[in-house]
Simulated assay, not measured.
Amino acid sequence: MLFHIGRRLVQLIPVLLGMSLIVFSIIHAIPGDPAQVILGEQATSEAVQDMHIRLGLNDPIYMQYLHYLKQIVSGDLGNSIRTQHPIAQEVLPYLAATIELSLSALIFAFVVGINAGIVAAWKHGSSVDYVAMIIAIAGVSMPVFWLGLMEQLVFGLKLGLLPSIGRYNVREPLQIITHFYVIDAILEGNWAGLWDVVKHLILPGMALGMYPMAIIARMTRSSMLEVINSDYIRTARAKGLNEFWVIYKHALKNALLPILTVIGIQFGYLIGGTILVETIFGWPGIGRYIYDAISYRDYPVVQSGILIVAFIFVAINLLVDIMYAYIDPRIRY
């Protein structure tokens, strides 16, 4: 098992290097002069030239990349052009907000999608199967921005059941410890604040999780249909085992590998694709952070934000590979 994990970690090195090179190249291909952005439109050409020297923009492109790579390895993501604050510190609250939102969306997608797919496969050909697949098709078809606006209209404005903007009610005192508000409320023992944070997560989490929920449901149904008619399932039923345990303990475990692949990929997309949901619900996440940086041509922030999202995507795929080996021991060999 350790050898398998070590081999996967070694294979990640060229992936991460290639990823950093692509991000660096794309950012440097964007039109605009960072020195001019820092100094403003009224800056003299001499001041702009001095800023080029300070930022190392006059160095050969390969030297700039090596310097950038050295900064990343040392954990230094540079400073924001707009705020002049270290990006590694500035990005943490935004990253925590996005991860918290993505996890809530994944939990919704996982719980609803897995169970809908299992029930659809279990009752294959019945009205339950058709209803579950209609819901899955609707989840794939509905644009996330439209679904978010409809949730705000119905549950926020019309019914007034759930908050439709922000991460929590600012009138509720909440001590920020980890920037993950759910964890902070639990650590503080602030149960009223915890409920308020959870309520703020429900609508954006459902809007963001609807598409992966539909994908997971369809994959679960397909994978379970391949397993549910196998000989060992018929044997388990012949032994008189409870149908619930036959489905969830025996069939689901052997159908889980392709489902895990989909879940890992969808979680990576959730991390990188939250910008629409964050904009609609006023969620201060990394998607909004990168979008604002693009507006201000804050290239170091854009570069670092994209790299962080890409790294998380790669790390999630590594975690899925490790879970493969845990679920199916044959993969370790």
Rank of each mutant, 00 (worst) to 15 (best):
P60W: 08
I61P: 03
Y62M: 07
M63G: 11
H67S: 14
Y68M: 00
Q71E: 09
Q71P: 00
I72Y: 02
V73Y: 14
V73C: 12
V73R: 10
G75E: 04
D76L: 11
L77V: 06
N79L: 15
I81W: 01
I81R: 07
R82P: 07
R82W: 15
T83L: 15
H85A: 11
P86L: 14
P86E: 09
A88M: 11
Q89D: 15
Q89I: 14
V91M: 03
L92G: 10
L92D: 06
Y94E: 00
Y94V: 06
A96Q: 05
A96T: 12
T98V: 09
I99G: 01
E100G: 01
L103T: 11
S104L: 07
A105L: 08
L106H: 04
L106G: 04
L106V: 02
I107M: 11
F108S: 07
F108K: 06
F108T: 00
A109D: 05
N115A: 07
N115P: 00
A116M: 08
A116V: 10
G117R: 01
I118Q: 00
I118F: 05
V119Q: 00
V119I: 15
V119T: 06
A120M: 11
A120R: 02
A121T: 08
A121R: 04
W122R: 14
K123T: 01
K123C: 08
H124D: 13
H124F: 15
S126Q: 15
V128Q: 12
V128M: 14
Y130N: 10
V131E: 09
M133D: 06
M133I: 12
I134N: 08
A136Y: 02
A136G: 02
I137Y: 07
I137Q: 03
G139I: 02
V140D: 04
S141D: 05
P143G: 07
V144W: 01
W146A: 04
W146D: 05
G148C: 08
G148P: 02
G148N: 02
G148F: 05
L149R: 10
M150W: 12
M150N: 08
E151V: 05
Q152F: 06
V154E: 01
F155P: 03
F155E: 06
F155K: 05
G156D: 07
G156W: 05
G156T: 13
L157I: 14
L157T: 14
K158P: 02
G160P: 05
G160Q: 12
L161A: 09
L161W: 15
L161S: 08
L161R: 10
L162D: 07
P163G: 03
P163S: 06
S164E: 12
S164L: 12
I165V: 15
I165P: 13
G166R: 13
G166D: 13
G166I: 12
G166W: 13
R167P: 02
Y168C: 04
N169Y: 14
V170N: 15
V170E: 15
V170M: 14
R171S: 15
R171L: 13
E172N: 14
E172F: 15
P173I: 01
